[in-house]
Design a protein around this nucleic acid. Structure first.
Lengths: 378, 378
DNA sequence: TTGTAAGCGTTATCAG
DNA sequence: CTGATAACGCTTACAA
């Protein structure tokens, strides 16, 4: 009898090693299956399946009876069972290095938005500092997702990525594509960095510093290349460059200030590899009594929301993280059209956002006038 | 033959109605199953299962053979199949009204952090403006999650919530518990609002306005109650109160300013139901040339990161959204100990954060001196 | 149009 | 300690 089966099922021990969820407050839930609906409506389970999925012609009358029974019993189909037979999950996995900061949350927002449109569920897993953790996460998603969106900006993850790619359709975000066929989306880091640097150099700065991001980080390295490219272009009166170490955190920006604050030949402009560091820097400068932009020019990268609120507001490069997530899902869902093998790398445009943190180097008291939020798009 | 089976499986059509994921770039993935491992190591699938899960005594030699075969074949167990037999998913679903803004992203961060510790995957679904959408999302999670964390602050969702609760262990966030047994976590909204209001009233303000949150929103209503409670307590020289409508967005804060800016009897202090609105308000005031805090006192709620960067920095109430997410997972995972029926509602403490946006009403030019970030904890 | 039955990849219950 | 084998809930040929 069905009743027996159910009781039996409920008494089955669960894997002991892992913590079990509290079921105390959950009313003994009625697990209705497709069988129950079949019995109640006097048809076979196959027919119920057909009705539920609208997957084949079914007599209108039968159809109605099935629907009635289904809603009467409040039948909710079991996703795992469906997946097992169809091998489709209608879910995508998202592997991120962390969840802190606006950049990541915007990426997720974009993913969520697109996933909703594509009727895809999203499984999130973050804090993959090491590639092993990433691999384990991917592994645990076997049979639970149809594809993966992975952000693995650190160098050295390529063999892991290849292994994962051999088992899931994958879209890479801000990562070095490990193989030729890889789908990947990144931001026009080089171009953005080049643009801010050009802007600042045009103001006349010739003693600059670059506040680098984490070593090995793909975005950070590309941005560095962009700054350098702009610097190389100044033939006459070649600029002096100095490198400061950072790790994308606000604290590291603050800390970096110590490297030059005491000195007399300090740079007149600093390119930070992201906004958080630039903001940390701004804080340290204010504390040290160095006026921005009069005595020091500072630029960031990302254009996070805070950047327009700090004072002085930050000149930076606008990155549409939300769009990146959005596109990743679309690409993964194969909706962007049949993707040609050679065209599966997307570089998202960025735009220079000029605010108040930049001035001319010698300008004692007269910062270059700039409009509040002028934007120059790529 | 195995080969035949596989080919067969691959050729099976998938449900046509929904968009399918691009599988183009994914190398024809080798779907290794427990059977393959069994064959390769010359044991039964039962034994392989035992080894993989370490669920029963197995001869050391056999064990080794199985592991060797498993890693040789790079076997990744299928989650859906596991779920089907064990009826455990090791995943929790998260239903949120939206994903925009720092508050939500912090909640998710907390959830992610705790989930990692509990070895739980998280399935996120947001943008549930209507209760129907929420129900559909919950439905689609049947068989895919062991429990649900739901944030449904709007009034009128209780019958939906009850239906969901009857099928999943559920923890509610910032929501009106629909039934007595419900587990729920919320923030000490009333207390926090009461505290800021007390602080401002102590400064001498007697003509105040309350910038409300979205109608029907639980947090918003509780905060309103808190403000009112503080106002009621002023016996001598009862304060004049005025209500402004908002919806938690920065824009609605900006818009609200129009309601009183032209007037001569405008309030001297405004309690905004959240930080975003307060910041919008600050923007509008600055634009209108009204000095804060000299001519107008403004307070917020939530203490989002931006609040310390706007100028003047915002006096607000610190809410630990991350902690809320963290606790929700722990509660759901039943790790907070055996939860007594009567003790399943948690109210998280908040703390008053005094910054520069508050002054005395008459103070023309002499704002009440306050330390940069003094915090008074609950 | 409908029913029967064979899987899907695991785990769990029995006997050996 | 190990192997058959019956579930788990659903989809989908294949028959009727």
């Amino acid at each position: 009898m069905t009743m027996c089966k159910r009781l039996h099922a409920r008494l089955q021990p669960v894997t002991s090693e892992s913590p079990s969820l509290a079921t105390g407050s959950c009313q003994e839930s009625i697990v209705t299956t497709i069988r129950d609906v079949a019995r109640a409506s006097g048809v076979s389970i196959a027919t119920v399946s057909r009705v539920i999925n609208d997957s084949a012609r079914v007599n209108d009358d039968t159809r109605r009876r099935v629907w009635d029974a289904a809603s009467e019993l409040d039948f909710w189909p079991n996703g795992a069972a469906r997946t097992l037979t169809t091998s489709r999950t209608h879910a995508i996995g998202v592997l991120l290095p962390e969840l802190h900061g606006e950049f990541f949350s915007e990426v997720i927002r974009g993913i969520d938005r697109a996933a909703r449109l594509e009727k895809l569920q999203i499984l999130i897993s973050s804090s993959h500092a090491d590639t092993d953790g990433m691999l384990a996460a991917a592994r645990s998603m076997r049979g639970r997702v149809d594809g993966l969106i992975i952000m693995a900006p650190e160098r050295g993850s390529s063999s892991t990525l290849e292994q994962i790619q051999s088992r899931f359709p994958t879209v890479l975000l801000s990562s070095r594509p490990p193989a030729h066929g890889s789908h990947s989306i990144s931001v026009a880091n080089l171009d953005g960095a080049y643009q801010v640097a050009r802007h600042v150099l045009a103001l006349g700065h010739r003693r600059v510093a670059i506040l680098k991001g984490p070593p090995g980080n793909y975005d950070a390295e590309e941005r560095l290349r962009g700054y350098r490219k702009a610097l190389r272009e100044i033939r006459s009166q070649e600029p002096t460059v100095e490198y400061l170490n950072g790790n994308f955190s606000e604290e590291s920006g603050e800390a970096a200030a110590a490297d030059f604050l005491g000195r007399k030949d300090r740079p007149t402009a600093i390119f930070a590899a992201n906004d958080y560091m630039a903001i940390g820097l701004l804080g340290a400068l204010r504390e040290a009594g160095v006026r921005v932009p009069e005595e020091m020019t500072v630029t960031g990268f990302d254009d996070i929301v805070i950047s327009q609120y700090v004072s002085p507001s930050l000149t930076t490069v606008r990155v549409d993280a939300c769009d990146m997530g959005d596109r990743a899902v679309r690409l993964l869902a194969g909706l962007t059209g049949p993707v040609a093998r050679s065209m599966n790398s997307i570089t998202l445009p960025v735009s220079l956002v000029i605010r108040d943190s930049c001035g001319s180097p010698a300008s004692t008291g007269r910062p270059t006038p700039t409009r509040k939020t002028e934007r120059r798009s790529t």
